[in-house]
Nucleic acid binder design. Structure first.
Ligand SMILES: [Mn+2]
Ligand SMILES: [Mn+2]
Ligand SMILES: [Zn+2]
Ligand SMILES: [Zn+2]
Lengths: 146, 146
DNA sequence: CAAAATAACGCAATTAAGTTGCGTTTATTT
DNA sequence: AAATAAACGCAACTTAATTGCGTTATTTTG
């Protein structure tokens, strides 16, 4: 029992429970997702000071996604963002959050908007639904002023 | 008064009203948006049989967007989609639709889901909101079977 | 309506996100 | 500890998106 991170979580154990190999990098990557609401490949690269090969990051993200640890967040630019799955609301094959997410079109940070409740997922004739996301975009406090 | 399209609309006039130059291509492009729920650059290119330079398409889409004719549709892949603004719900600076949109992760078609009502836009402390989108993703009827 | 001004267009070159193959290293299983 | 499987790094590649610039089409003005 040697957990020493800001979340009192055993990230190696979480990885193991999801069938993901617990390498140093992947443990740190999972930790990172607990610190930031959402991440892009570039943001991960910067966080690791470019010491990790970008291909490794891409493949780790795909692996995390396949094993139900993270999911993609829709946005209007052409950069893929990932966000930690909420164990209450997400399963490996059906992702939703009960609240909206705000994406700043300048700094690209994302923020949870607890005020915005997203509708429940209900089946629709002939559509196989994998995810539901309520996306708000615009400028955050910092970026609006500039 | 020589309007001969499937929508009984004078696309040249609409362009003029929005301050967009009415070239043959842009008239046809606007027409195209009235036929398809959403479009990517590649889809536009194919519709014009690759006769229009892709840079021209990119710049026309940016122009349409700036003038409030179309807006981006968030998605989880890295390809930008545009959709016609709804004059009832969209303004040049604030875009929303009152219903969710479904994106097929295989054929990339989009479908309006009138059953899914999106919440109203309400101001949030320190956030400047430009758009609200309710995005559902998965597989459409055709692509689910394959 | 013709000239001047402005906006759109096409082409070539570039940037940057994302992917693939393969040999090597690290982790997991037996 | 040996065998198996997964992760990693590097180089090369693909493709979406952007930029510069000279040319052509549209719009504005006298
Ligand atoms: Mn999820
Ligand atoms: Mn709109
Ligand atoms: Zn911002
Ligand atoms: Zn489909």
């Amino acid at each position: 029992m040697k957990i020493k991170n800001d979340h009192n979580l055993d990230f190696a154990l979480i990885l193991a429970n999801h069938g993901v190999s617990k390498t140093k990098f992947r443990i740190n990557l999972l930790n990172l997702f607990y610190e930031k609401e959402s991440l892009t490949v570039k943001e991960v690269m910067n966080k690791f000071s470019n010491l990790i090969n970008k291909v490794t990051i891409y493949r780790a993200l795909v692996s995390f996604e396949e094993k139900g640890l993270i999911h993609k967040v829709p946005s209007s630019n052409n950069i893929i963002r990932y966000s930690l799955c909420n164990s209450d609301e997400c399963s490996a094959s059906l992702h939703k959050h009960n609240h909206g997410h705000f994406i700043c079109n300048n700094c690209n940070q994302t923020f949870c908007l607890e005020n915005y409740k997203s509708p429940d997922i209900k089946p629709v004739d002939g559509f196989y639904i994998n995810s539901l996301n309520l996306i708000l975009e615009g400028y955050c406090k910092d970026c609006h002023l500039n």
